[in-house]
Design a protein around this nucleic acid. Structure first.
Length: 638
RNA sequence: GCCAACGUAGCUCAGCUGGCCAGAGCGGCUGACUUGUAAUCAGCGGGUCGGGGGUUCGAAUCCCUUCGUUGGCUCCA
């Protein structure tokens, strides 16, 4: 007698060891049709696994969160089978599930997206056959024999421990796999190949280049459609596209990977920095600036010459070797090291909007998201060990304040000591527990990435979530136990002895260029009033009103507002349309009436028009909206 | 750096199984219209078809090479 406990704590008894399907059938036939896998005492298994002892069993249907991964994993097998049918000489390597889909790395001839339709047709044929996934187990020797013509599979087998290997077979296709899988291929209701790219076997450049074919799969065609719609939405928001449309920035062959910011882009940039300075002043920071080029001696001292050389631009001037800084820290170290410090001066918070250059691989470049020259909103904080918790907490609060201003939610990740690291156990313990207790005190919760810290210290990464749910790592707080040592930094403690300060690097925007790009996509180009490149577009009703409108522009500009006049001899409709397309938050129509009564006819981006607004009240509300850095599109609500 | 795709007017794109003067829409300019909230009409300019080399009677179209862009690998702000 086998007793199966279901999630609702009900118990079902079976004479013989039941499979998941048997259990599902004991509930209802419709439910059973829907089940795709099961969980036995917390372990995911195939639905046809026999439960041979009393156990807690959960039957999975497409609604369960784990199900989609099982589906995609199975989809990867189906894709692999389809490819082998079409390209018998192909050799499979690995085919994991990734966010939003799956891929399979295959050693085969180069293919392109044009080959997708025929592969997809083959996949559909396999799905239609509703082939069951059958699990088999083999010993190491049997597995090696079975895959003797599959060099990559052999290498995988040899790299794994244990003596029993599981394989899954559907139709004539068999693959080494841990499982679990769907009951049969027919459960794959929606599948689509997304793209193909190169990848190296075991991510090693010196090894075989493979074809990585990406696909995605869903239980419902509607879900696939929704996913494709999201991709479409992301494409519409692409900052590279909006950057051209809104005249914000550009790239030129003469400086690949190094953005040029246009006047309108700089308006946004300056608004970002103005806010940054305000927030940092409030948080007790001073601002510094260090040169972008420093000599080799400095970089040898900091360790960059040894560890970061291949990413640095170097130059020889007057027989002296220089490097353009890839990071701001060494300059910051020099500044702190200039004069003695008392414990009473700590913590010392020095911010720097530092321009750094890093020679990224050409293939890594991508719009403003990955560039070779960028500005970091850096800061170096020097403190006593006792101050770690309080200081980190202060940074977290600043992070909170800044991201909230943009309507960005975020989560935190703590990375701890990696295998290769410098510093003593005690130092790491003190540093890590300092970060941990700051995170605990902050109370937002965080994820721990064991062993993911930098070699010179643990760190906290801040991941923001944008308007369409994508996450980006921007801010980071890194504790550095190496540089104060290398630069022999010290402060005089209460005991009148020299002590080594604790130092952190931290950024909040991260790279201003990248943050700019993220914000552009987050807002879909519809920047809030305080950030908008052009805040007000004045629309004269006819050409005779242009001089009067230009005079108004002058007045509004003097108020610190970013204003333009549409002087074209176009219809009002046309001028309104073009201002809308440029996502300008305020359109102010100037007709004879407005001049006469000293009022404004104001239109906001949501299409609402308010006629006859007193100029003083317009100004007051606009100023207040900007001062509060409000995100609301309703500038004249009430 | 590697793999793949792409590069035609300021922008978006057509032409690309080689062959009439390389096209369209938008933008720009000129003129008319003088407009009350998402495209007024007409006319006119504008292109080394990314650069270089080659095949060919003939190349935007085919080949080689180079630069750049995009998607990945990798790396990371």
């Amino acid at each position: 007698m086998i007793r199966i406990t279901l999630p609702d704590d009900s118990i079902r008894e079976f004479e013989n060891p039941p499979s998941g399907m048997d259990i599902a059938l004991s509930i209802s036939e419709g439910f059973a049709r829907n089940c795709i896998a099961m969980e036995i005492d917390g372990l995911l298994k195939d639905l046809n696994t026999s439960v041979d002892k009393d156990a807690n069993v959960r039957l999975l249907t497409p609604k369960d969160t784990e199900s989609i991964e099982i589906l995609r994993h199975s989809a990867a097998h189906v894709m692999a089978e389809a490819i082998l049918r079409l390209y018998p000489e192909a050799r499979l390597t690995i085919g994991p599930v990734v966010e939003n889909g799956f891929y399979y790395d295959i050693d085969m001839q180069s293919i392109s997206e044009e080959d997708f339709p025929k592969i997809e047709a083959e996949i559909q044929a396999i799905i239609k056959e509703k082939k069951p996934f059958i699990r088999k187990e083999m010993t190491r020797n049997e597995a090696r024999e079975r895959f003797k013509d599959e060099p990559y599979k052999l290498e995988i087998i040899d790299s794994l421990e244990g003596d029993i290997f599981s394989l899954y077979e559907q139709g004539g296709f068999i693959d080494l796999c841990r499982g679990p899988h769907l009951p049969h291929t027919g459960h794959i209701k929606a599948i689509k190949l997304m793209r193909v790219s190169g990848a190296y076997w075991r991510a090693d450049q010196s090894r075989q280049q493979l074809q990585r074919i990406y696909g995605t799969a869903f239980f419902d065609k509607k879900d696939l459609k929704a996913y494709l719609t999201l991709l479409e939405e992301a494409r519409k928001r692409d900052h590279r596209k909006l950057g051209v449309q809104l005249d914000l920035f550009s790239f030129h062959d003469e400086a690949p990977g190094m953005p040029f910011f246009h006047a309108k882009g700089m308006a946004v940039w300056n608004a970002l920095l103005e806010y940054w300075r305000e927030a940092h002043r409030d948080a007790g920071y001073v601002e510094t600036k260090t040169p972008i080029m420093l000599n080799r001696v400095l970089w040898e001292k900091s360790g960059h010459w040894e560890n970061y050389r291949e990413n640095m631009y170097t130059s020889r001037v007057d027989e002296m070797e220089y490097a353009i800084k890839p990071m701001n820290c060494p300059g910051g170290m020099l500044l702190f090291g200039m004069k003695p410090h008392s414990y009473k001066d700590l913590p010392h918070r020095a911010g720097e909007i530092g321009l750094v250059h890093r020679h990224e691989m050409s293939g890594a470049l991508s719009g403003l998201f990955r560039v070779r020259a960028f500005h970091q909103d850096d800061a170096h904080i020097f403190m006593t060990p006792e101050q770690i918790q309080q200081e980190i907490l202060g940074v977290l609060q600043l992070v909170d304040r800044v991201y909230a201003t943009f309507g960005l939610d975020f989560h935190l990740e703590l990375s701890t000591r990696p295998e290769k690291s410098i510093g003593s156990d005690a130092q790491w313990e003190q540093a890590t527990s300092g970060l941990r207790s700051a995170l605990d005190a902050y109370g937002k919760g965080y994820q721990v990435n064991e062993g993911d810290g930098a070699f010179y210290g643990p760190k906290i990464d801040i991941h923001i979530k944008d308007a369409i749910g994508r996450t980006w790592q921007c801010g980071t707080i890194q504790l550095d136990m190496a540089l104060p040592e290398r630069f022999d930094l010290s402060y005089i403690g209460k005991d009148n002895e020299k002590h080594r300060p604790i130092m952190i690097h931290r950024v909040i925007y991260g790279s201003i260029e990248r943050f700019f790009g993220i914000l552009t996509e987050h807002f879909a180009g519809k920047f809030p009033l305080w950030l908008a490149p052009v805040q007000i577009m004045l629309l004269p009703m006819n050409d005779d009103l242009i001089p009067a409108t230009e005079a108004l522009k002058k007045e509004l500009t003097a108020e610190g507002l970013r204003v333009e006049v549409d002087t074209r001899s176009e219809s009002l409709k046309k001028k309104v349309r073009d201002a809308q397309l440029l996502q300008i938050p305020l359109m102010v129509t100037i007709g004879a009436k407005e001049i006469e009564t000293k009022t404004f006819a104001v239109r906001t981006l949501d299409g609402r028009v308010i006629m006859g607004m007193e100029r003083s009240s317009f100004l007051e509300k606009v100023r207040e909206h900007i001062r509060r850095r409000s995100l609301s599109p309703e500038i004249f609500k009430d």
